[in-house]
Design a protein around this nucleic acid. Structure first.
Ligand SMILES: [Zn+2]
Ligand SMILES: [Zn+2]
Ligand SMILES: [Zn+2]
Ligand SMILES: [Zn+2]
Lengths: 181, 181
DNA sequence: AAAGTTTATGTTATTATATAACATATTTAT
DNA sequence: ATAAATATGTTATATAATAACATAAACTTT
């Protein structure tokens, strides 16, 4: 386990997502820490769940965690093929992805058909994302006030939610500041 | 056909989506009205935008409006092929879909790779959906309080939203009441 | 009305994403 | 060691979407 302290980045006001520094969007953070932290969490969670984090699954998770940009299954396949000598076929990667999704270690970004590491795999899985069109980064966030309104809307219709996907597409702080036109 | 009157379904408390009765999920409504209303709106909107609602595009819109269940591009293709004698290829349907999306007459449901008619094509396009896993119906809704929290969350991260996709998957009121196990 | 221009549709091929079905290997339990 | 369960390999196929180019229809200009 790496040091447990999650650094002192202040969370944006109103957000419930304290461990994730805003600056991941601007790449100004210790990403090595993101990776080691994610891998350690993964081991813990799988152990707790009696699930087997095999070599392949760990490798896939690590590759996904190479960045905060959601990674497609086929690019991921190529990366796997590049790392090992043997050929890698779609079912291999999709089964690993399925496992990681089940364990709550990754999320699928529906607007991109791509997969990204979960930044708070221990807590709740609100599955809310800010997706930057310019740099490709997906920032996971959760906010109680937002979730309350979501639940309220569903309740208004007598609808009972099993899973939710909130994807806000636009420009992150860094890319908005930078000239991207 | 059933009576034309839209009935006096009260909107759920807190919702901003008054014209759409909750009961569309339970099929207890005058769907013919949904269709004619959607087609008329489409003509108005296209006229206003100087866009051409061609025969093909109108046909596609009508087919999508056959129900409140999001319709995939390929099933739609088959329906088109069934209606005319000639063969219909993917680009034909995708171009029509693209046009209808641009005009705000339909929405794409990302979790289903499918398309559904917009139930309030004149107003804002919050693009929020309740999607029933059992009956397949997608209910579009908007709620100011929810949108405020969305905007707030984005603002907290300095993120500027260009488009958003909120898809809540679960069970609609009707299906929840019914035994579906 | 004729010619030119734009817009829409037809057509063929290909790319991108994901799963089915079955075989082999590895791990766990008996 | 044997059996059962789980994971991975392999081949083929399903599903979703786009690229590139040809034809047709609709508007514009003369
Ligand atoms: Zn990082
Ligand atoms: Zn960015
Ligand atoms: Zn209807
Ligand atoms: Zn239902």
């Amino acid at each position: 386990m790496t040091s447990t302290k999650m650094s002192s980045h202040t969370s944006p006001a109103g957000s419930d997502t304290p461990p994730l520094p805003t600056s991941i969007a601007s790449q100004q953070h210790d990403h090595t820490h993101c990776i080691t932290s994610a891998m350690t969490s993964a081991q813990d969670i799988c152990a707790r769940n009696g699930a087997r984090l095999t070599k392949l699954r760990e490798q896939v998770l690590r590759l996904i965690w190479q960045s905060h940009k959601p990674l497609g299954a086929y690019p991921l396949m190529d990366m796997l093929a590049a790392e090992s000598t043997r050929r890698v076929a779609p079912p291999t990667v999709y089964r690993a992805l399925e496992f990681l999704l089940e364990q709550g270690l990754i999320h699928r970004i529906n607007t991109l058909n791509a997969y990204v590491g979960c930044t708070h795999p221990n807590g709740d899985h609100a599955n809310n994302f800010l997706i930057c069109e310019h740099c490709g980064v997906a920032i996971e966030f959760s906010a109680t006030a937002l979730q309350d309104r979501i639940n309220e809307s569903a309740a208004d219709f007598g609808f009972s939610i099993r899973s939710q996907s909130i994807e806000l597409v636009g420009s992150c702080e860094h890319c908005e500041a930078t000239d991207h036109e």
